[in-house]
Nucleic acid binder design. Sequence first.
DNA 1: CCACGGATTGGCT
DNA 2: GCCAATCCGTGGA
Length: 203
Amino acid sequence: MTPNKPKKLKREFYTRNLLFVARELLGKIIVKRSGGKILSGKIVEVEAYHGDYDQASHAFKGKTKRNEVMFNEGGCLYVYFTYGAHFCANVVIGKKGKGIAILIRAIEPMEGIDVMTKNRFGRESIQDKEKYGLTNGPGKLCQALGINRVHNGTDLTRNEIFILDQQKLKGKEIGVSKRIGITRSVNLQWRFYIKNNPFVSRK
DNA sequence: CCACGGATTGGCT
DNA sequence: GCCAATCCGTGGA
């Protein structure tokens, strides 16, 4: 029996409970079409952000020009610019108007590693010690995939950027911790990662 | 109008 | 491990 070809995740995947979806995104494959080429990688680390009681969320203070995409129906991409240098990509979750999203913090490169290398380091070749630095952080993976402000609001049920379904991971394969780099609501254990994967940004 | 600071990164001590 | 770089959205005067 041949395995089924992986299918693109549909709207219904994204409109469910935040923390269920955050765990289920681990191991799934994010794909971006770049010209004629396919860039893809396995999602290995995410963080959940809620709109209502989570003070670390961009949506906590309500809708603004910057965060308005977070209030869309689940299944689109929220891309923001930070520290004057980096883009970060989030998957919008839940029903329209909620302001809920999941930050993709790290991926393991699969297809198009040559293009990702060029995007990250400006050259074709890569040294062994640079291998994990390709996509082991939220700003790094956006640079590798060529995700920037023009992709803010991209519908993930279409064909430019999407996520392929994969088998759900077992609970014991998933690590849980506090979120990284925030100063409010610091105690929520809303970071999820694949244990022992070398592309995870931190222990 | 202006000051503040951030869901980061990379380079230097 | 520490810290500067660098943009710009946001909020207060």
